[in-house]
Amino acid sequence: MDILKRPVLTEKANSLTEKLNRYTFQCDHRANKLQITSAIEAMYGVNVESVNTMVVVGKLKTRSTKAGMVSGRAAKIKKAVITLKEGEIIDFYSNI
């Protein structure tokens, strides 16, 4: 199970990073907070203070086809908001 899928790089996530030293990641929906903490610490070499998780339900999607209207949902995702200890940072753009 690959615990961390990708960092979430949105305006809201960037403002959390700048103001509160929090980073947002998309995670596997089966991962718990302890697994997420250990994965972050192993991958980035930082100390995690706290982890908050949320499951974001996929949006309803509807499209018109020959057979009529077809409706469904986008996949749900799990997001983790990581708070790091004071003075530590994660640089996502260093590997580019």
Rank of each mutant, 00 (worst) to 15 (best):
K5R: 12
V55I: 12
G58M: 06
A13I: 14
S50P: 05
A80I: 08
I89K: 13
E41N: 04
I3V: 15
K79M: 11
A13N: 11
A39V: 10
N21E: 07
T37N: 06
K33L: 09
V51C: 04
Y93H: 09
E49N: 09
T10F: 10
N21H: 11
D91C: 01
K78V: 08
D2T: 11
K85T: 11
T24V: 10
E88A: 09
D28W: 02
T62I: 10
K12N: 15
I3Y: 09
V51T: 02
G72T: 11
I3P: 02
V8L: 11
D2R: 14
I90C: 06
F92N: 09
R73M: 13
G72P: 10
E86F: 06
S64R: 02
N14R: 07
V57T: 08
A42R: 08
E18N: 14
G72L: 10
T62M: 08
M69H: 05
K78I: 11
T53I: 14
A13E: 05
I89G: 00
T10W: 08
Q35W: 03
I96A: 04
Y93Q: 12
K78A: 11
L4C: 07
G58L: 05
V56S: 04
N52K: 07
K33Q: 12
G45E: 10
G87W: 06
K78H: 13
V55N: 05
K79Q: 14
A75N: 14
K85Q: 08
L84T: 06
V46R: 02
F92A: 04
K33C: 02
L4P: 05
A74W: 00
R73N: 15
Q35I: 13
K59N: 13
T62G: 01
V51L: 07
E41D: 04
D91F: 04
G45L: 03
L16I: 01
V56W: 00
A31S: 15
L84C: 09
I77N: 13
E49P: 04
